[in-house]
């Protein structure tokens, strides 16, 4: 019984992790400029990697290696905003003006 619940919980977590990674990929393709894309690229790291690592922790069960997955998540959470900020900042320094909605409310890239 407990094993069944655990199995399906792992499947659900992996599925949601994949879902958010998928959303992130869709966002990177659809969004108009580098700034907007940075927003959604960080989704892969936060929820995508977060949920998948939670699944890994659950699959490993109560053992020492589980601690590593938590640590892994911790480092992802430190490095992700650093990288996102570095990209956005260098974009700003290269003089890229952020895309803004004009008349069309579609939000498609011009």
């Amino acid at each position: 019984m407990i094993e069944t619940i655990r199995f399906w919980a792992i499947v659900a977590l992996v599925a949601f992790g994949l879902f958010f990674t998928f959303v992130s990929v869709v966002g990177v393709i659809r969004l108009p400029d580098v700034y907007a894309r940075s927003h959604t690229a960080s989704q892969t790291d936060t929820l995508g990697a977060g949920l998948t690592l939670a699944a890994v922790a659950l699959a490993l069960g109560w053992q020492h290696a589980t601690v590593y997955t938590v640590l892994l998540l911790f480092f992802v959470f430190i490095t992700n905003p650093t990288a996102a900020h570095a990209i956005a900042r260098s974009a700003a320094e290269s003089g890229i003006v952020p895309y803004e909605n004009t008349v069309d409310e579609e939000g498609e890239s011009p």
Binding site: Y35, H39, N80, H85, R89, A91
Partner: peptide
């Protein structure tokens, strides 16, 4: 701020 999607610190 950067970690929450939707807001991104540029500078």
């Amino acid at each position: 701020i950067t970690l929450t999607p939707g807001t991104l610190t540029v500078r």
